[in-house]
Computed example of a mutant assay.
Amino acid sequence: MKFFKLQLLFSLLLVSTFVSGQNQWFSTYTDSVALIKESNRLSELFKADIKKLKPELDFKTGVLLNTTPYLIFYGENDTVNLPLWSQVIPPIKGFTAQVAGSEADGERMFGLFFNGFYLPHELGHALQDYVDKKNANVSFKNEYLANEIAMLWWRKQGKEKELKACYELAKSMYAKLPNPVPEGQTAEEYFTKNYEQAAGDPFVYGYMQFAQFIKVYEDQSLPDFDIYITNYFKKLD
């Protein structure tokens, strides 16, 4: 009987280890159920942090497994659409491998950013849609706002190690991407005018997003998340 109990305990420990591994955000998920469960937990935490600062806000954005070439996005159905690596189409996997350096590094990049950093980025878009709908049309400025929100929220969660990993990879990938901005235009002008076209080309869109991530990460003037969001709400009043 004692031996049986030890075997049972060992089996439970193995199951526990596997499940916890599947719930490690900033890594590439293989289990869609675990992906949605953890993204829901993080989304509720994000929304709770916003509600503390603006209790009257009815912020109900959910998450949904929906793998498309856009990978992760906030949709018109008021959900953040999340991708699963096994469902990503080959051309997009090819892009991740090319910019990250190898297939393994491409998969790692996917986990860091698309099963990682960009969840509160998309929730930041949702927040703007709730409180500032007239200015919530996709633009360079709104992407920058969402990147600042995501960066500061992850810092609030103590994810400095994960953010540093994203930063180091973003710098490496950004250095490999050609600058699509025509001479005589700023990046903001170009991407604001050509956003839809840019979003359809991962090399062009990646150039913008990685550049923004690097700049936001290095910005020492940013306050903490609560002050940033409080100031954001004040500007809208």
Rank of each mutant, 00 (worst) to 15 (best):
K2D: 00
F3E: 11
K5N: 05
Q7N: 10
S11P: 04
S11G: 09
L12P: 11
L12I: 02
L13M: 12
V15N: 08
F18S: 04
G21D: 11
G21E: 14
Q24G: 04
Q24R: 15
Q24M: 09
F26V: 02
F26S: 01
T30H: 09
S32W: 07
S32N: 03
A34R: 12
A34E: 07
L35R: 08
E38P: 06
E38L: 06
S39N: 09
S39T: 06
N40W: 14
E44Q: 09
K47V: 01
K47G: 01
L53D: 04
K54I: 03
K54H: 11
P55T: 07
P55K: 12
E56Q: 14
E56F: 12
F59E: 03
F59A: 00
K60E: 11
T67L: 08
T68E: 08
T68S: 13
Y70N: 06
Y70H: 15
L71A: 08
F73Y: 15
F73V: 10
F73C: 07
Y74S: 02
Y74W: 12
Y74V: 03
G75K: 13
E76V: 09
N81F: 15
S86P: 06
Q87F: 14
I89G: 09
I92A: 01
I92T: 05
G94C: 01
F95A: 09
A100G: 03
A104D: 09
G106W: 08
E107Y: 10
R108G: 02
R108Q: 11
L112H: 10
G116W: 14
F117A: 05
F117E: 01
H121N: 05
H121G: 01
L123Y: 14
A126N: 04
Q128G: 03
D132M: 09
N135D: 13
N135S: 14
N135P: 01
F140I: 13
K141S: 05
E143G: 11
Y144G: 00
Y144R: 10
E148C: 02
I149M: 14
I149P: 05
A150D: 07
L152P: 04
L152D: 08
W153C: 00
R155N: 13
K156T: 00
Q157S: 11
K159N: 07
E160M: 10
K161E: 15
L163S: 04
K164A: 10
A165G: 00
C166A: 10
Y167Q: 00
L169S: 06
A170C: 04
Y174Q: 10
P178V: 12
P180W: 08
P180D: 12
Q185D: 09
Q185C: 02
T186A: 06
T186H: 11
A187E: 13
E188P: 01
T192G: 01
K193H: 10
K193T: 03
N194I: 02
E196P: 01
A199S: 15
P202I: 11
P202L: 02
P202D: 07
F203M: 07
V204S: 03
Y207W: 15
Y207I: 03
Q209G: 02
F210V: 00
Q212H: 14
F213L: 09
K215D: 06
K215Y: 14
P223R: 13
D224R: 13
F225H: 04
D226G: 11
I227W: 14
I227H: 13
I229P: 10
T230E: 04
T230M: 08
Y232L: 06
K234V: 08
L236W: 14
D237A: 13
